[in-house]
């Protein structure tokens, strides 16, 4: 690690003031940041610890949802009785990620800001446009096994590695953000992460000095909630493909279908057209295939990760079959 100035403010306001510079970064659980600082992928001159600023409660909202403080740990979220009963897709997604040790430290806000696991990003002696703009993308012509097949660009094919945010995307949760000047804004999780485009160094919409304060879940929704994570080993591995699904049936037809995907893109992938396609139809293999066609119509593999395209198709079919109790 490079030397840095460690600050631990006792108020959010103070934290905002301390973190306005380009070279300042926030630390909460630190499980991703310190990993990257040791590799000198992250080289902040100032580290602002916000771990003792509260924001660690899960509260009911007026419209029947839940507000999860930015510093609520993944463990606390996954084990909250309300989350377990009303938002099991979120609990399941969190439990499918990392390990108990890491979930005990990882926070809601930190997890949203988790950076890619691209091998070229984490190796500072390799080119990476995300880490070092203009240096090139090592993965496109290199080993792209972990990488994206949707929404990639010629400058970056990295994936967002997390699970929690995939479930939050399916749930249509909202990120609450306070800016350096104290003003507040809300951004849907679905819009929080960015595609790489020609600015791959931007993972998400946060501006310098902005701090995530909470994630709000909308009121309880009807339907079956599932999280399916396909990975190379049975635990402690990032997703090759993951699917978060909230599916409700009305009689023999699908009444609601909110789907988000992990492992495929620079962000949790949410395609509103899937819901339009599925709702009002009777579930069967042909319908699931059409949904996959739509999801993957612009998918592009990079050799090593070509498999993700058929794998996403098959995983989607498995999830839809399970959620709608359709025999395939």
């Amino acid at each position: 690690m490079r030397p840095f100035d460690l600050q631990r403010p006792d108020s959010l306001e103070h934290a905002r003031n301390l973190s306005t510079g380009e070279t300042a970064t926030l630390i909460a659980g630190g499980t991703n940041l310190l990993d990257l600082m040791k590799l000198q992928v992250e080289v902040p001159e100032r580290v602002v610890a916000i771990d003792r600023l509260g924001m660690n409660e899960i509260q009911a909202t007026e419209d029947g949802g839940l507000r999860i403080g930015a510093l609520v740990t993944n463990t606390a979220t996954a084990n909250d009785a309300r989350i377990r009963s009303d938002y099991p897709v979120l609990a399941r997604a969190i439990l499918a990620g990392a390990t108990q040790q890491l979930r005990n430290r990882a926070t809601t806000g930190g997890n949203l800001c988790q950076r890619t696991r691209c091998y070229y990003f984490t190796n500072i002696d390799q080119p990476c446009n995300k880490r070092e703009p203009g240096s090139g993308c090592g993965a496109i012509e290199g080993i792209a096994r972990l990488h994206g097949v949707l929404g990639t660009s010629s400058s970056c094919i990295a994936t967002y590695p997390g699970d929690m945010a995939v479930a939050m995307s399916a749930l249509d949760a909202t990120v609450e953000i306070v800016s350096a000047d104290g003003s507040e804004r809300s951004v849907p999780v679905r819009d929080f992460h960015l595609l790489p485009g020609d600015t791959p160094w931007r993972d998400n919409v946060l501006e310098t000095g902005e701090i995530i304060t909470a994630v709000t879940l909308p009121a309880l929704v009807e339907g079956k909630q599932l999280y399916r994570k396909v990975r190379e080993r049975s635990s402690y591995a990032f997703a090759l493909v993951s699917v978060a699904a909230i599916i409700a049936m009305e009689g023999d037809t699908i009444a609601r279908a909110d789907l988000a995907f992990g492992g495929l893109a620079h962000k949790p992938w949410y395609d509103p057209r899937l819901s339009d396609l599925l709702v009002g139809k009777a579930p069967d293999a042909a319908l699931f295939d059409s949904a996959a066609d739509l999801l993957l119509e612009n998918a592009q593999g990079y050799g090593e990760n070509d498999f993700k395209i058929p794998l996403a198709r098959r995983t989607l079919a498995a999830v839809l079959a399970e959620a709608t109790e359709t025999e395939l």
């Binding site: 091998y119 984490t122 390799q126 012509e141």
Partner: peptide, 18 residues
């Protein structure tokens, strides 16, 4: 997994070597 251009071991940690 080795990079085809410089032969470096790409998945050189316990997160990605399973």
């Amino acid at each position: 997994h080795f990079d085809p251009r410089d032969g470096h071991l790409v998945n050189c940690d316990l997160a990605e070597y399973h």
